[in-house]
Simulated scan of single mutants.
Amino acid sequence: MKKQMFMFIACIAMAFAGLQLHAQGRMNPEDRAKMLSQRMEQQISGLTDQQKDSIEAINLDISKAMQAAFEQNQGDRDAMRSAMQSLQQQRDARLKAVLNDDQYKQYQDMMQNMRRNFRGNNGGGGGNN
């Protein structure tokens, strides 16, 4: 009986985790920007309140632009990839102006880890980028 109860709880937990992952893919730009900003606040040391406000504004602007680019370029992978890369470069440039050198390095490391984890969770990507 205890084993069955454990299996039942484990199945519920796995289903809940799957729903959370699925929901993340359908977040609106505001939620995506907020989640990235919170992650940055956790992983970048020494952020001032002014930097946090700037980071949130930058992430929101870029997240909205990415959503628009996604909607505009559906079906055209090359155009979408180009737009997303351009927007990421814009985010990087704007953040570089807000963060000090050490904080920007922490940001770059965080993004590299996120990309590595994303590729690892999606079967390795699918090509050399």
Rank of each mutant, 00 (worst) to 15 (best):
Q67C: 00
S37L: 00
Q24W: 10
G123R: 05
N28W: 06
N73T: 12
F6S: 00
M80Q: 13
G123S: 09
A23Y: 11
L87A: 09
A57D: 14
Q43W: 00
Q72W: 05
R116D: 13
N128K: 13
A83P: 01
G25T: 06
F8S: 03
Y104H: 12
L95G: 00
M111G: 05
R81T: 07
I44W: 05
Q43H: 10
N59P: 00
L21K: 03
E30L: 08
L47C: 09
R32A: 13
I58T: 08
H22M: 11
R115E: 06
L21I: 06
L95F: 04
S63Y: 07
A10K: 03
A83S: 15
G46A: 13
F8K: 12
Q90K: 10
K52S: 12
C11F: 14
S37Y: 07
N59M: 12
C11E: 05
N122G: 08
L60Q: 11
Q51F: 10
G75L: 06
G75V: 14
K2G: 14
Y107C: 06
S82Q: 13
R115D: 02
A10L: 11
G75A: 09
L95S: 01
S63C: 01
Q106N: 08
N73I: 00
G18T: 01
D49F: 04
L95R: 04
A15C: 07
L19K: 00
E41Y: 01
G18H: 08
F6C: 02
D92E: 13
N122K: 04
N129R: 15
I58A: 01
S82M: 13
A93L: 05
S37D: 05
M5T: 13
G123Y: 06
E71K: 11
N100D: 15
L47V: 08
F8V: 11
Q103L: 11
